[in-house]
Amino acid sequence: MGFLDHLELPVLPSDKTGEGNIIVTSLDTLFDWSRLSSLWQMSFGLACCAIEMMSTSASHYDIMRFGVIPRPSPRQSDVIIISGTVTLKMATRIKMLYEQMADPKYVISMGNCSNCGGPYWEYGYHVLKGVDRVIPVDVYVPGCPPRPEALLEGLMKLQEKIRSQNHDDADDADSQD
């Protein structure tokens, strides 16, 4: 059971009838572990933050060691990194791309523009003041633009979130309750 020890599974209950629950819990943990270890990223960039995102993907910072591989299609992607200024024109397209992604899907908002409008917050007639007005965001990475280290930290925060997500929640789609 060396592999399951690595997953830090909950302590097994001692009663013999509780085995069904044990199987469900460990599968969820296994799925979470595989999800956070292969977060395929949608190949998608918006503005100057996308340059930092690209350098995070390149050999120096090598985001692929976290299992992040850029995919050319939203159907194959698990995470969308909103890297740059979300204009009103692009916001409708981003929403469509997000809806085309298969569940479970995650969103990293990278940079001040996509967090809250950034420098365009007051006079940006063409800028959406935060991508969370159209799609739900899991992790916000501040910076203008954030350094690759900051994006990697945001990614690790997302992995932490996936690892610690509670499958007993009533809003979980798989919940039987």
Binding site: L88, K89, A91, T92, C116, G117, W121, E122, Y125, H126, L128, K129, R133, V134
Partner: peptide, 27 residues
């Protein structure tokens, strides 16, 4: 800008729309 954007934004009398395609525009 998008084809259905309301108005011409560099005019002095331009007023930012409150909503655009259901998205709130002002901060």
């Amino acid at each position: 800008l998008d084809d259905d954007y309301p108005g011409h934004p560099l005019r002095k009398d331009f007023k930012e729309p409150d909503f655009y395609h259901g998205m709130k525009v002002p901060y």
